[in-house]
Design a binder for these strands. Sequence first.
DNA 1: ATCCTTCTTTAGAATTATTCCAATTTCAAC
DNA 2: GTTGAAATTGGAATAATTCTAAAGAAGGAT
Lengths: 142, 142
Amino acid sequence: MSTHAIHSDALAQKLADSGLRNTPQREFVYDALLTKRDHPTADEVYARVKTQLPGISLATVYNCLETLVQCDLVRAVNFERAPTRYCPNLHPHAHFHDETTGATHDIELPASLLAEIKAVLPPGYNADVIELTFRGKLPATR
Amino acid sequence: MSTHAIHSDALAQKLADSGLRNTPQREFVYDALLTKRDHPTADEVYARVKTQLPGISLATVYNCLETLVQCDLVRAVNFERAPTRYCPNLHPHAHFHDETTGATHDIELPASLLAEIKAVLPPGYNADVIELTFRGKLPATR
DNA sequence: ATCCTTCTTTAGAATTATTCCAATTTCAAC
DNA sequence: GTTGAAATTGGAATAATTCTAAAGAAGGAT
C-alpha cells in the first residue's frame, strides 16, 4: 500500500458518490491535509505535495482543494483577506487565530451552543453554514 | 451646515482622539456608510462618494476606510474571499449573508450569548475579536 | 484490444482587490 | 507667511486565485 493511500478510503467513497475520479493528485493533496493539520494555505499544500509528486502544478492543487471542499471532506477557512486555509476537521468547530504566531486552533463546539447560536436568527433566516472565528493572543509559554 | 457634516460629530471626536485630521474625504466616506447601511465594498463607497466629491481617488477611499476601522467607527466584514465590506454598526452583532441576493443583514447578539460563546474557549485563550457569520437563503418573499 | 468520450491535469496568461510609491496638496502651528 | 507633518492622488506593483486551451489519463461500449 502506498503511503498516501492510508487515508484515502473516505476520499474514494466521497469522490465516487459525486461521480468524480480518484486521482493521485487528489489523494496526495488530501493526505497532506490529514498528515499535518496546521491549516495550510494552497501554496503550503503545493510545497508539501511537490516533495512526493514533483510534477504537480499549483493550479491542480487549487482544483483538488476545491474538489475536496465540494465533497465535504475539507473546510475552507478565511481570516480577513489572508490566503484561504484548509482544514480536514469535519466536526462542528470554531477557529481561534493566534495573532502572535499566526497559528490557527480548532475549538470544538458543543451542539448545545450551536443550537443557542442558531436561535438568535429571526424567523425565516435559515443558516446552511455558521462560521465562528476568534482572534486574540495566546500566552507565549505553550 | 453641509449635508455630510450631519453625522460627523463622532467622527471628529474619534479622529481628534487619535491625533488625526478631520478631512472632507473622511467625512464623506463615513457619511456614505451611515447613509446607506448596506455593507458596501470600497468600490461602492467610491462610486457613492464621487457623486459629491468628484475628485476623490479610490486609494483615498481605501485610506479613509482603513482610518475609520482604526478609529473603531467602522467594522470591516469579510465573506470568503469576496471584497471587504464596511459596516458602521458598532453594537456586537453577527452577519447573515443571504446567498440568494448577496445582501448582508446584521443580527444583534445578546451579551448573554456572547458570554456563552466566549466560554467555549480553553483557559488561556483570550479573544479580542469574535466574528460570527451565517450563510443561507432567505425566503424570496420579503 | 481499440475507439470514444469525458474528466483531469498542466503551464501560463488573465483577473482583481488591495497596497505601495513618489509627487503634490492641505493645514495647523509657530 | 513659513514650515513641517499629515493627507490625498494617480498610477504602478503585488499576490491570491481563476481562467484558458492544450495535452494526458481512464472507463465503457463495441
